Amino acid sequence: MNELQEVAPIIKNYSLEPKFVEGFGKVQKVYTDKGVFALKKISPYHGTDFIRHIQYLYQKGYNRIVPVYPTMDGRYAILHNQALYYLMPWLPNEERENRSERHQKLFRELARMHTISSREIPIDQEERTEHYEKTLEQWEKEEEFLEGFMEQCEEKIYPSPFEMAFILYFNDINQALRFSKNKLKEWYEKTKEEEKARTVVVHGKVSTEHFLYDDRGYGYLANFEKARESSPFHDLLPILSRSLKTYPKQCEECVDWLYTYLKYAPFKEAEMLLFTSYLAHPAPIIKAAEKYYHTEGNKSERKNLQHLQKQYWLLKNTEYVVMRIDEIEKQKQQAKEQAAQAEAQKGAQD
């Protein structure tokens, strides 16, 4: 069965007649008697819960979403041959700017979506405390592991190349972990008495691949299959982390992207503390060391060492971004304090 024959019974539910089909992975570009459409195939286990989040965002006034079309009988997905399919317009998605500008627009749209869907929800103080204590306990265990592994490496007369590299990287890893812990503690001290927390509709799989342009050059978010209500961190942290997984560099672009977001959707002080805590946490390189430590028998020393080095690059790239954020936030705080002092002096003179 060719693609056209496979698509025909699905498209029929939309009162469309397919003329030609092009495959693009999980998306098929379908030329029909009424225009060009994108037909997306997903696992039936996903379900169509994400449609509820799309509809909610539309109701709130956010329309920069690639729409999902209903069938003639009102369904938003078709179950066919043990897979779900849903239909969208096909956007040309022509490149009209460089990589950084595309990211700027993506972060701005993400901020708008988060702001429109933002709401305060009650939170159990015991649950907050439990989350804090579990996270802190986990990070302290990681600290113990790092110190123990470091001692073991240093005691060896002939450490392996991986162990030699770990010895060189140890101080940077430990410093990042301690920074994360300190920010987490600051966050908890500021919020332990609060009874509410902010939540938004998160996209769940943010990337420039899911930010498409129409023929007028307007950007739209697509692929909401993992959308849910959660902290905005669940959108921001993954996309920043992916952008930092590269050769060593000082990614000032990443800082600009984040502050483009914050211009339209600013964090509270406590939210920034928790965000920098999570961003700085060196989980990937700790996992690389743990995997090496727990692997018995034959080890591919070269592959493990290459993997460790890549995680170290990520650590240092992230460190630069975190330090820049910390510097900017301190400058903003100093400016506020100076403005407050100036206002107080003016009031005293009056």
Results as ranks from 00 to 15, higher is better:
Ile10Asp: 01
Ile11Glu: 00
Pro18His: 00
Pro18Phe: 03
Phe20Gly: 07
Val21His: 03
Phe24Gly: 10
Gly25Leu: 05
Lys26Gly: 06
Gln28Tyr: 11
Thr32Phe: 08
Phe37Glu: 00
Ala38Arg: 00
Lys41Val: 11
Ser43Pro: 10
Ser43Tyr: 11
Thr48Leu: 11
Asp49Arg: 15
Arg52His: 15
His53Thr: 05
Leu57Met: 09
Lys60Asp: 00
Asn63Ser: 10
Asn63Phe: 15
Val68Leu: 03
Thr71Trp: 00
Asp73Ala: 04
Asp73Phe: 13
Arg75Asp: 08
Ile78Ser: 02
Ala83Phe: 06
Pro89Asp: 03
Pro92Met: 05
Glu95Thr: 15
Glu95Phe: 14
Glu95Ala: 08
Glu95Lys: 13
Glu97Ser: 09
Arg99His: 15
Phe107Ile: 03
Leu110Thr: 01
Arg112Asp: 05
Thr115Ala: 07
Ile116Tyr: 00
Ile116Phe: 05
Ser117Pro: 04
Ser118Leu: 06
Glu126Gln: 10
Glu126Ala: 12
Glu127Ala: 13
Glu127Ile: 14
Glu127Asp: 10
Glu133Thr: 08
Lys141Cys: 06
Glu142Ala: 09
Leu146Glu: 02
Gly148Gln: 07
Glu151Asp: 12
Glu151His: 11
Cys153Pro: 02
Pro159Asp: 00
Ser160Val: 10
Glu163Thr: 10
Met164Lys: 10
Ile173Glu: 03
Asn174Pro: 08
Leu177Phe: 04
Trp187Tyr: 15
Tyr188Ile: 01
Lys192Tyr: 09
Lys192Glu: 01
Glu193Pro: 07
Lys196Gly: 08
Thr199Ala: 07
Val200Lys: 00
Lys205Ser: 14
Ser207Asp: 02
Phe211Thr: 00
Phe211Glu: 01
Asn223Cys: 08
Arg228Leu: 12
Pro232Gly: 03
Asp235Thr: 07
Pro238Ser: 04
Arg242Val: 13
Thr246Ser: 15
Thr246Gln: 09
Tyr247Met: 10
Gln250Pro: 07
Asp256Gly: 10
Tyr259Pro: 03
Thr260Cys: 08
Leu262Tyr: 08
Lys263Phe: 13
Ala265Ser: 11
Pro266Gly: 05
Glu269Ser: 13
Ala270Gly: 04
Glu271Leu: 09
Leu273Ala: 09
Phe275Ile: 10
Pro282Ile: 03
Ala283Arg: 15
Ile286Glu: 01
Thr295Gly: 05
Glu296Phe: 14
Asn298Val: 14
Glu301Asn: 07
Leu305Asp: 01
Gln309Lys: 15
Gln309Pro: 07
Lys316Gln: 14
Met323Gln: 14
Arg324Asp: 05
Gln331Ser: 14
Lys332Thr: 13
Lys336Trp: 11
